[in-house]
């Protein structure tokens, strides 16, 4: 195999500049996904049937269609959807956030269901209102159980974010592709992109292990 990194050396900083862009998209999308995911999961376990239906419908839509399609719908459809043309960055974190909310809500719902029923009863028997019981008693226990699954979702999000290339956002993936086009050498820059994604995922994995270890201590 002959690899020639010399030609693309000068372009490496350009590729690296994609890292903060990828991180920002992933970061904002993760926050949206998490907050909306909690809301959706609470709707799913609600006693009010219409709330169940809405949340289940939402989830089925975002799980039932390709992510890249959702991204394109939101980006190209934004004038019709929101009345303005949003930029690629906004379209990216919006679609990833809305998409991962669907997956995260399922994970959180499972986590809540796995908490012993007696916990909610004990809190309510003390006169603690439902909302506080959920927030202070049930969710902290649920999160402890689902932390590995949430970390997994974040890792998936980081890797999948590469599809923003298609709407022209200058993330790691797109930049390496551009360098390929300019130097007529695609293999090397894309290898570099792969290495960057791999390192990011490894770092996330380690962070996840550390947090998990901390939480184990009260066991």
């Amino acid at each position: 195999m002959n690899l020639d990194f010399e030609r693309i050396m000068p372009s490496i900083p350009y590729i690296l500049e994609g890292i903060p862009i990828t991180l920002q998209v992933v970061g904002i999308a993760a926050v949206i996904g998490f907050v909306l995911g909690i809301l959706l999961s609470l709707m799913k376990i609600s006693k009010l049937k219409p709330l169940n239906w809405i949340a289940d419908f939402y989830t089925s839509i975002f799980r039932g269609t390709p992510l890249v399609l959702q991204l394109m719908l939101i980006y190209f459809g934004s004038p019709q959807l929101f009345g303005v043309q949003i930029d690629a960055f906004e379209a990216a974190f919006l679609s990833f956030g809305l998409n991962s909310a669907a997956y995260i809500s399922e994970v959180i719902r499972g986590g809540i269901m796995a908490v012993d029923k007696g916990q909610m009863e004990a809190a309510q028997a003390l006169g603690v209102p439902y909302k506080s019981s959920m927030l202070n008693i049930i969710l902290p226990q649920a999160f402890k159980n689902i932390l590995p699954a949430l970390m997994n979702e974040l890792i998936t999000l980081t890797k999948e974010s590469a599809v923003v290339t298609i709407i022209g956002l200058g993330d790691i993936m797109r930049r390496s592709y551009i360098v390929g086009g300019e130097t007529y050498k695609f293999f090397e820059p894309i290898l570099i992109a792969g290495l960057i994604y791999y390192v990011m995922v490894m770092i996330l994995t380690i962070i996840g292990k550390v947090i998990e270890g901390r939480m184990r201590r009260s066991d």
Partner: peptide, 12 residues
Amino acid sequence: GMVFQHFNLFPH
């Protein structure tokens, strides 16, 4: 006040 068979203390 209520006391349960399985205690239901908050483990966290």
